[in-house]
């Protein structure tokens, strides 16, 4: 196990027993993974690939069948490891009768924030999650995006070194999703390690330094985002005002050097960028 890793997973296997006959279902199969400190790490994969099970084992919520896991050098499932970890579960649900501020205060107390620092810690995390204005409202009145943001605030209130976010943008509109992306970048700027589990590949590509892809409980790919996505034998040149004559001349010049033009298209904005541009300034408050 490497102490320089935020999370070190070695040979992790998890079997579930299903039905009365106890048929074995392997959810995670001999997974080994090192997540470096100070980076945003994306854990990807289709539904049922073992992502959430892996996260739950890392957090000590379910026991592993075999394998060893450490968080920041501490064995996972210990309070020392969880003291340094913040977690936002998928589709979070909180006590509806509490206000946002009360929830974050409650979580600060449970996370061992000293009494004298609770107020400042709560206000700082609410501010980072852009929830200060709505913090006095009962959670039962929050929209989905606000629930995710208050969930993020409770996850970071004790200033953890490692933040695990399970589908933080599920069901959130593109504006809210972009806001969460900005929060992730703000946490990265503070030197935090962030593990992001998401189906929004566009967002993962934008915010993550490294990604791992799981399928059927196994790790199928792991590496830096720019390395795993780069097509080393292809290049993109963006040209303004390309006339037919200029195009012919460019193709001829490239052909003279043995290069082949495989496609010429107009660059496109992403639909998400267009949406955010059109509804800019709006907030799901």
């Amino acid at each position: 196990m490497s102490t320089s890793s935020a999370i070190s997973v070695q040979g992790l296997t998890k079997d579930f027993r299903v039905g009365l006959r106890g048929i074995k279902l392997r959810a995670v199969d001999n997974l080994s993974l090192e997540i470096p400190r100070g980076q945003v790490f994306g854990l990807l994969g289709p539904n049922g690939c073992g992502k959430s099970t892996t996260l739950k084992i890392v957090l000590g919520l379910i026991p592993a069948t075999s394998g060893a896991i450490s968080i920041l050098g501490f064995p996972s499932a210990t309070t020392e490891a969880r003291q340094r970890t913040g977690f936002l579960p998928e589709a979070p649900y909180f006590h509806k009768f509490l206000t946002g501020r009360e929830l974050v205060q409650y979580c600060a107390r449970l996370s061992g924030v000293p009494s004298a620092q609770v107020h400042d810690a709560v206000e700082a995390s609410l501010e980072l999650a852009a929830m200060t204005e709505a913090a006095s409202r009962p959670i039962g009145t929050y929209s989905k995006g606000m629930l995710q943001r208050i969930g993020l605030a409770q996850a970071i209130v004790h200033d953890p070194e490692l933040v695990i976010l399970d589908e933080p943008t599920a069901g959130v509109d593109p504006v809210g999703s972009a806001a969460i992306g900005r929060m992730i970048n703000a946490m990265r700027a503070k030197g935090k390690t962030i593990v992001l589990c998401s189906h929004l590949l566009g967002q993962v590509e934008q915010v993550c330094d490294r990604v791992a892809i799981m399928d059927r409980g196994r790790l199928v790919l792991e590496g830096r985002v720019d390395e795993v996505l780069a097509q080393r034998d292809r290049h993109v040149i963006t040209v303004a005002y390309l006339t037919p004559q200029a195009r012919q001349a460019a193709e001829a010049a490239l052909a003279a050097h043995g290069a082949t033009v495989t496609s010429i298209t107009h660059p496109r904005r992403s639909l998400e960028d267009l949406f955010r541009e059109l509804v800019t300034g709006s907030r799901d408050a």
Binding site: K56, L59, G60, L61, T79, E80, R82, Q83, T85, F87, P89, A91, P92, Y93, F94, H95, C107, L110, S111, G112, G151, Q154
Partner: peptide, 14 residues
């Protein structure tokens, strides 16, 4: 069932 236990037990709480 509401999965609030997930949030709570992920904290340094035995």
């Amino acid at each position: 069932e509401n999965r609030t236990a997930l949030t709570l037990l992920a904290k340094p709480l035995s």
